[in-house]
Design a binder for these strands. Structure first.
Lengths: 228, 228, 228, 228
DNA sequence: AATGAATGAGGGTTCATTCAT
DNA sequence: GATGAATGAACCCTCATTCAT
């Protein structure tokens, strides 16, 4: 019992420390997102977290460690969810199902990026400057990361004749690029005069563009007009 | 003659100063692209330019002025060329011509971005941190800027029945996003294990994806297979 | 009790900070007095105070803040004392008392200036360069400041017939000028070959020169009034 | 003739150079007076003189040389005139003559100081910071310098019984101090709310204050001698 | 564990001085 | 002689990091 008590006590300790760590990291994410990594001082982060500057160093080695640790804010769970959703594309051979599922996937992807928009922002301005190793860690938490998984699934579509024959590496990355760019323009470059678009519309249009392309199909024209 | 001599002498002075300025700015672009704006010291820029630190201040007010002036490295001419190319899409109603022209446009767009990849990099990591005004200047030198022009041209396509009915703002931006993302992944996040792709392939695939979409068309399947 | 403890603890903190601040300010005064404001580096001040350069900025906004804060080294108390002494001149109608009191006043004035000679030196070399606002603060801690008070007291002397009729603004300032100049010559322009004079002698001679010059002469009163 | 021509040609050269030098020095004096020595840049001085910064170094060794050379702006003639005027006090035994001459002397002294107020200003803020040698040069061009001459003349007055017995070093310096202080307050500490006084009034009052304080009183002579 | 005062290395910037033209 | 672009040493100041409390 004594030992249990200790253990549970220490578990409590650890949990508290983990919470504290996360609390600081979230404060840092907000601060970095606001002014950029280099422009943010440890004092500001401390103030944002409501603690003393020195305390940060009890949980993080140094300022860069905060940056490196940021991706951990995006729970593994989130990444797993996203990957699972990508997996749900498997075995959908009917275009109608495909469109619905893909649209849903894109919508959720956008939602997740916006949910972690602060990390995303910091990522964007920091990644070009990072060393190889850190960058790798960062990119694992990025939509970019899902490219190969998407490509593999599309491969089955091609094999089944649902998709035409094409370079799937390129096509998968193109799809991600579209999604990425919308979030980039609207959420990361804020306050500009670009008219903000509704993400449901965006998801729907991207889905169609990807699936059907832009050209009018002689036999589809009627349908398209009926739909809209 | 005396006056002419004087004038040409002063013109020579001015031209020299402009060259010097450009020389320093290019050095700054390289340095910023390497380590990021905040991480680059004036000393480093001076060394890169082969001059003394103090000399920079004869041509630029301060470090930030270097950043703000970077877009001027991309000559107005370049932007005009790009816009002219976009204009060349006008009145191309045959899908075949459209495909060729669009592919060419995309290839040239990518080439231009890579040509100014250093500015592009700095842009990406600095824009989120910039104040409103500077950001606006920066974005004018960005592919993003061509979105509305593209959209307007696509509008005529829709009206002519070449394109199906769709939200052209979204679609135009999606196209740019695809292009943007490829350059981002391959040129701005350097040294990663993502397999580099040939930009001619990329341009071709993007063009097709955009024009035809991903789904196999019953009547096109044969053609597609013949082509590849 | 807990709260009391806290309060006294914080009071201790504050007192320590105030002491630190004063310590730095005194070091700055010595350094400035030695080499002048512009010629003194923050490093030198830090060395004089026995701290690191950065520490100064915990207590003062910048170098100029040190200069502006210098007058606070002369305690309000000192100024109040001086003013009180000036007040003690009131209601002394007998020339003998007047001489004794004035001499005492002058001696104390000189003593006070010498006591704060470093501030005085910095003042002299910095005031001509200061902006309006700062200069005003500085001059309030200056003998110049007592001119009007002296003038008012002398006014009563004139009214009582102790002093002859004269321009009291001028006369009061003249008295202060004499005192000021002695300190200037001997303490602010140091190391010159001007023979240093004993300040007791100086005070006595100034007192006499002023009094015999200011006192109404029984047989001259009429003439003076006729003249004016 | 050839040699003469050369000589006169060189003399012309020299005179031109001397004029140029004086021109620069006057520009420096204005600039220093405006912002203080340390706050003034060589570029500003050059602009004030209407020449290029490098040109200054053809006439002066460095910035400090400008400061050291400033007193030469006050022509020896001026100093000689002032000294001659002091000499005119000699042998004036009648109080009435004395008053008129002294008042005239004081008025001229004030006028001369104001005439060279820029040098005077620079002097005041620079002298405390100067090295021994330079300071000596500066002080030679200062009212302070006339103290001993005044003292010697007053000595004859005492011997003749015109002045009472007193410490003439102190008294002479006191007189100079009064004059100095008025100019200091009104001309060197500009823009303050001290009411500006008319210098004729000032000269008159100072003269009277000094004379009535210094003159021997028939009935007091004995007492004075007893005291000393 | 938490604090926050102290540190001091390093950055951006200025400006007296030089020297090729 | 005159110029003014170039220099680079030196300054003020910031801020990541430490450590005594």
């Amino acid at each position: 019992m004594d030992e249990q008590g200790k253990t549970s006590g220490e578990g409590w300790r650890e949990r508290l420390a983990a919470e504290r760590r996360r609390h600081i990291l979230e404060a840092a994410a907000r601060a970095f997102a606001r002014k950029g990594f280099a422009q943010t001082t440890m004092k500001e982060i401390a103030a944002e977290a409501g603690i003393a500057p020195g305390t940060i160093y009890l949980y993080f080695k140094n300022k860069e460690d905060l940056l490196i640790s940021l991706p951990s804010l995006i729970a593994e769970e989130t990444l797993a969810d996203a990957m699972a959703e990508v997996g749900s594309l498997q075995d959908l051979m009917s275009p109608a199902d495909l469109e619905a599922t893909l649209c849903h996937l894109i919508r959720n992807g956008i939602r997740r990026m916006i949910q972690h928009i602060e990390v995303f922002r910091v990522l964007l301005s920091s990644v070009p400057v990072m060393d190889e190793e850190t960058r790798e860690v960062y990119l694992r938490h990025t939509p970019l990361y899902f490219g190969s998984a998407l490509g593999q699934i599309f491969q089955t579509y091609v094999e089944q004749g649902v998709f035409r024959d094409m370079d799937l590496t390129i096509v998968a990355r193109a799809l991600i690029g579209m999604i990425f760019f919308f979030v980039l323009v609207q959420e990361v470059l804020p306050g500009q005069r670009v008219m903000p678009l509704d993400y449901d519309d965006v998801a729907r249009e991207i889905t169609r563009l990807f699936l059907y392309g832009a050209l009018a199909q002689p036999d589809e024209t009627a349908n398209t007009e009926e739909e809209s």
